[in-house]
Design a protein around this nucleic acid. Structure first.
Lengths: 137, 137
DNA sequence: ATAAGTGCAAACGATTTGCGACCGC
DNA sequence: GCGGTCGCAAATCGTTTGCACTTAT
């Protein structure tokens, strides 16, 4: 199903464009910073509202994991994420989607399963490097 | 490794006991309510502090998913969860832990992977029933 | 005595909301 | 002109923190 193609306001457009131009899964606040460069008068509320709108209309994904601030993703294909436990960075984990586990879960839980998310957690290369350097102290 | 068996204060004990007595993955606040029945003067801060302590000492698990309030689990064995998108309830999904995907992810991401969490999302039996009943309107 | 743990209230960060102004059809 | 959207400020929610007071050892 194609997106309902409703109103695309200027701010909505810029937000989506900025979101698509990065691979860093920014938080609403981070996005607000960069969007503000082009639309200095935009408010953080607008960013939140439009991000939710984009998600609701299938133009973006929300990664709401780990208590931390929600992150957003301009890619809509299902994929998994890895989070660094030290610096909080989130990256994509390129693994083939495990389709079969949905039906398994459905069977065992009685829920109507719509999907699943997998988050790997660990230490990113940069942080594990830092860790070695400061092992003493 | 057995828990460090440090201080077990009265409030700590009650909190763990209450947490273990339910399967509902309560939030800190929900737990606070029930613990207060036994310890009327306990503060919410103590509940938060002790839940973190229990997690740090391997006596409980934190389920921090979906932006929503963190939930806690008195079971420490690794297992997955299903969340109802309508009522927010979290239940266990009895699926054998997928051990192999950790090493796969490690290979692809370059991270040192410590583990992963899977959350299925969908509609619980109760809510899908309600949905039918209120289909009109 | 001292180190750890507590209750309270205030602080915090992320997000949401109410509202009057505004913009595009 | 009207409905949808915006910017702003205030409100909310979950959680954390500073601090002075207890409590177990």
């Amino acid at each position: 199903m194609l997106p309902p193609a409703k109103r695309i306001t200027h701010q909505r457009e810029i937000i989506l464009q900025k979101l698509r131009s990065v691979t860093s899964h920014p938080t609403a606040d981070e996005l607000y910073m960069t969007v503000k460069e082009h639309l200095p008068r935009i408010s953080i509320a607008t960013v939140y509202r439009n991000l939710e709108w984009l998600v609701a209309n299938g133009l973006a994904q929300k990664i709401e994991v780990s208590g931390r601030p929600k992150r957003f993703d301009g890619t809509v294909q299902p994929h998994y994420h890895v989070r660094c436990q030290m610096c909080g960075k989130v990256e994509d984990a390129v693994l083939a989607p495990l389709e079969d586990i949905n039906s398994r879960a459905e069977k065992y839980t009685g829920y109507t399963i719509c999907g699943h998310s997998i988050e790997f957690y660990g230490i990113c290369p940069a942080c594990s490097h830092d860790q070695k350097n400061s092992a003493h102290r």
